[in-house]
Write a protein that binds this DNA or RNA. Structure first.
Length: 281
DNA sequence: ACCCAGGCGGGCG
DNA sequence: CGCCCGCATGGG
């Protein structure tokens, strides 16, 4: 059993995070049910009120499964401190009120990378479909589910097979980053690097720009200071903070760093994104 | 039919 | 640096 105050699995999974693309979520009368497969095995969670009960299989032990869940769902985050930090104005207060319990999930760097390379110039529903087909096509068969595809599996696939999953023009980016992660890119090294250096290293890769790099750092490398700016965040910030004027990505980054200094820009961003998308349009 | 989606690379001034 | 363009695909 795990205590989980200020956790909404629904908001967390719905808000376009990598976890959503490889998990199975349902909300029944017994509570919120979430299942997902990792390289180590399968995790199954049931949350009712502020408590999580869980099951596991594969290589997991009671302790490692618990650690996995706490880490994956960001349960170590002090939401009181985070809400005080990002609740800087009426828009942010409304966002927090609407989506209290929305967490930043922590995913494997490769998983975050593949998901967000696919996300570019795309929409959440389609990303989900493409990821589902890639998992079915290239992920190891674990019986009930397939595991997340390894970089090696995708690196050795041919471009046509990747494209057959519905990736469109992103096929070559997908293959390229898979080759990097399989053979040359030192993905461990980024954990020990500062935010700026790690972002620059990711942006060396073909198909990874400013926004995708920030997503990978936020959702894959536990760097909560990352602030991904997509079309929604840009549009909403321009409306709320810049009187509707077109504003460059660079200016928006500068504004965010000033308004939400410290370690929680990534949380600010996720609440702007989801509140803006769901409640403001 | 038209527009848009968790953008990026390349080319231009 | 900023700006503009093309890019696959499917849903509204």
């Amino acid at each position: 059993m795990i205590l989980a105050r200020d956790l909404s699995i629904r908001h967390t999974v719905a808000s376009g995070q990598p976890l959503a693309f490889y998990s199975h979520y349902s909300n029944g009368k017994h509570g919120e049910d979430l299942r997902y497969v990792t390289q180590a095995g399968e995790i199954s969670i049931l949350k009712r009120s502020g408590r999580i009960s869980f099951c596991f299989s594969g290589e997991y032990t009671e302790k490692s499964a618990k650690d996995e869940i706490v880490s994956r769902l960001g349960l170590g985050d002090d939401m009181g401190e985070i809400y005080r930090n990002i609740g800087t104005d009426q828009f942010m207060e409304d966002a927090i009120k609407s989506f209290k319990g929305l967490r930043i999930t922590r995913n494997d760097p490769w998983e975050a990378t593949l998901c967000f390379v696919i996300s570019q110039f795309n929409n959440i529903k389609r990303i989900r479909g493409i990821m589902g087909r890639m998992i079915g096509e290239f992920g190891e068969d674990r019986g009930k589910y397939h595991a997340f595809p390894t970089p090696e599996a995708i690196a050795s696939a041919d471009l046509g097979a990747i494209r057959a999953c519905g990736t469109g023009f992103r096929d070559r980016y997908i293959k390229s980053v898979a080759e990097e992660f399989a053979f040359s890119f030192d993905k461990k090294k980024l954990y020990g690097m500062g935010y700026g250096d790690a972002k620059a290293a990711l942006m060396e890769l073909d198909g990874i720009g400013d926004k995708v790099a920030d997503c990978i750092l936020l959702f894959g490398y536990n760097k909560l200071e990352a602030f991904p700016i997509d079309t929604w965040v840009k549009r909403i910030m321009e409306r709320v903070y810049f009187k509707g004027r077109k504003t460059s990505i660079r200016k928006l980054h500068e504004f965010a760093a000033e308004r939400w200094p410290g370690r929680y820009q990534g949380y600010a961003q996720q609440y702007i994104f989801w509140h803006g998308r769901e409640n403001i349009g």
